[in-house]
Amino acid sequence: MATTGLNRLRLARAGVGVAGAGRTGVRRSPNRGAFTLLVLIAPSVLLLVLINAYPLVYGAIQSIHRGTLITTGPLVGLENYTDVLADPRFWKATVFTLVFTLVGVFGSWVIGLTLALLLRTKVPGGPVFKVLLMTPWVVPIVVSSTAWNWLVAAPDSPLPTLTRWLGFGDALFLADPTLAAITVCVFKVWVSFPFMMLMTSAALASVDEGVYEAASIDGAGSRQKFTHITLPLISRSTYISWILMTIFCVNDFPTIYLLTGGGPVDSTTSLIVLAYRTVFQDFQTGPGVAIAFIMTIALVAVSTVLYRQIRKVEIA
């Protein structure tokens, strides 16, 4: 790529960085209404402490006791954690959570990006498609999981009937462990791609068309334009959507639980489903909360790494 294109690109990047920061240097007279600001934020702080901070502390205490839902029980130190880490079910759930999250994030991203690029061009009925394609994100999971159950669960459901007719034989979409895991992942991608599509569309809308024209003049092919211009220019938004989707996937309970309940033979049990079952079905509060805390630590670590990545992109 020649220099003109690169310069345009740099300028555009800088422009995106500024626009993304989204705020001009607002100044206000010192102390004016500092008390009012304190009052304004008080309800939010109060709720944060009650609904988010308090349970975190209480949960931490629970995770080092061997109690039930009603009693705290005796102090056992880190025994719950060591027990959980020694449990093969925990590692099986960890592997499934990783697979589910990777497929969920990148599957929905690839589809969302492709659709956003398609919708960006002049296509007959484009806006209508965009609204219709948002449907999976808007429909409650309870409803869509019921619909998916109707489609795939029983041997005489539409999709197994279709696979038989196509000559693939009986496909037990929710009864075969491997197939059930794949089905849950596909369901998650179906639910999540509209989010990625919307995020990417918003990012693409802020890209200056002039950059592409300059690149065309410099003789850049469409593939080059995509990898050297489009992807770098939307990278900030991409990282943000990856972070959010990672959080959504790891914390996702209903998508999995409503479709398979974590089965068959635990093949679709993610960490959050395992934590739920440990507490509310096996009544082992300590180990269950310990699982939730291990998830939390991993999630905060991953988010922090990706969050730093955003900052880097902003400077670049």
Binding site: N52, Y54, P55, L56, N251, A275, F293
Partner: peptide, 14 residues
């Protein structure tokens, strides 16, 4: 980024 389940169990008890 905290899993909802972390908060839900203690909140349920409270």
């Amino acid at each position: 980024s905290l899993p909802a389940i972390t908060a839900i169990i203690p909140l349920f008890i409270l």
